[in-house]
Design a protein around this nucleic acid. Structure first.
Lengths: 189, 189
DNA sequence: TTGCAAACTAACTTATTAGTAAGTAAGTTT
DNA sequence: AAACTTACTTACTAATAAGTTAGTTTGCAA
C-alpha cells in the first residue's frame, strides 16, 4: 500500500496544530496511517524533513487560497471574511494555526525549518497587507495606521484568538473576529 | 545543597517560555541547577506537578505586579505601559509569554494543569479589562467596544507579538505595541 | 549527642524516541 | 527475462524520557 502523501502531510499538520511539533512522534503518524514508522522515515528521513514538508504543504495551500481569491475576483472584505473562515473552521477540533503552533517552539528547530516558517509567515503578512491596502483604496476599509501595521494587528488577533480559545473556549474567538471585522468596515460618524 | 525553589521555578519558566513545555526535561533543569534529576522529582514528582507549580509561580508574580500597581497608584495608561514593559523585556532572550507558550500545547496537559492555565489567563484578562474600563472612565483611554472585548484585542496583540518576533525579529513587536498604545490614547479629530 | 525528618544522591527501571540496516514484494525499464 | 527502482516491513539500536527505590547526608530540635 502506497502512502498517500497528501494524507500524511494533512495528518501531520493536524497533529502539529492540535498537540505541537515536539509532542508528536513517528509512531503517532504511522499508527494512524496503518504503516510502520520506517515507511515515514523512507519519505522524510528526519523529523525536521517532515516538519519542513508540512510547512511547505501549508504554504502551497495558502498560495492556492490566494490564487482562488484572485480568480473569483472577490472584494477585499470578502477575502478577509473567507480568510477568517479558515481560522474559525479550526475551532471545533481545537487546532491553532501553524504559525501559532510552531512559533513558540521556534528555537528548537534547525535553520532550514526556521526558514520555512519565516517564509510562511511573511507570505501571510504580505498578502494581508496587500488586501488591506486595496480595501482602503477602494473605500471599503478604514484604519489609521499603515496597511503593514494593520496587518500585524489583525494577524496577531487571529493567531492568538485560536490559542486563547483552546484555553478559555470558543466565545473569545468570535468576539475578537466580530469586532475586528466591524472596526475595519465601520463608517466614521 | 538545598535547591532554591525560586531559582528552580524561574529556570523552569524561562525554559518553557523559550523552548516549550514538551521540549524540556528533568535533565535540562537538573544540569543547570547542578543537582540530580531525582532531586527535582523529590519536590515535584511528575512533570505535570512541576508545570502546575510554574504556572502558579507566574500567577503569584502577576498578582504582586497588580498589587504594586495599586500601591503606587499608577494611572491606567502608566499601568498598561508597565505591563507592556514586562513583555518587551522578554524580547531579548526570545521568550514568549507563558500563555502563548502553553496555550498551543493545552490538549497535551492533564486537567489540573489545564485548570491552572485557565486561572492565569482569566486573571490577566480580568485585570486588563478593569484597567481599560477605569482608563476610559477617567477620560484617558478611548475605544469603541466593551472593555472586556478591548482587553481581548490587546492581549492577543501582545501574546502574538512575542510569537511573531521569535520568527520575524523584534521590529514587529515594537510596531504593534506602539500602535496599540497610541490608538488607545489618541484623541478623536 | 542523639534522634529524626527533610533533602538529597546513586543507581536503577521502563517506555518511548528518532533513526537505521537488511531484506522483500511489486512494479518498471532495458 | 534480467536488472533495477520504488516503497515498503521486520527488526534492530542508541539515546533520552519520566519516574522509582534504597541508601546517604544535612540541619535542627530535644
Amino acid at each position: 500500500m502506497k502512502i498517500a502523501q497528501e494524507r500524511l502531510l494533512e495528518l501531520g499538520e493536524t497533529l502539529i496544530r492540535t498537540r505541537g511539533f515536539n509532542a508528536i512522534s513517528y509512531a503517532d503518524l504511522s499508527q494512524k496511517l496503518q504503516v510502520k514508522n520506517a515507511a515515514i522515515h523512507y519519505h522524510y528521513p528526519t523529523k525536521e524533513d517532515l516538519g519542513i514538508a508540512i510547512i511547505r504543504f501549508n504554504r502551497e495551500k495558502f498560495a492556492q487560497f490566494c490564487q482562488h481569491m484572485i480568480k473569483r475576483e472577490f472584494k477585499p472584505d470578502e477575502q478577509i471574511r473567507r480568510y477568517i473562515r479558515i481560522y474559525s473552521s479550526s475551532l471545533q477540533d481545537e487546532k491553532v494555526c501553524l504559525v501559532g503552533s510552531l512559533g513558540p517552539d521556534f528555537t528548537t528547530f534547525g535553520p532550514a525549518m526556521q526558514n520555512e516558517l519565516k517564509n510562511l509567515t511573511s507570505e501571510i503578512l504580505d498578502w494581508f497587507t496587500q488586501v488591506l491596502e486595496q480595501g482602503r483604496n477602494e473605500g471599503i476599509f478604514q484604519f489609521k495606521v499603515e496597511p503593514q501595521i494593520q496587518a500585524l494587528l489583525i494577524i496577531t488577533n487571529l493567531t492568538s484568538a485560536l490559542i486563547l480559545s483552546k484555553i478559555m473556549g470558543p466565545t473569545a474567538f468570535h468576539q475578537i473576529t466580530d469586532s475586528v471585522m466591524s472596526s475595519l468596515l465601520k463608517t466614521q460618524p
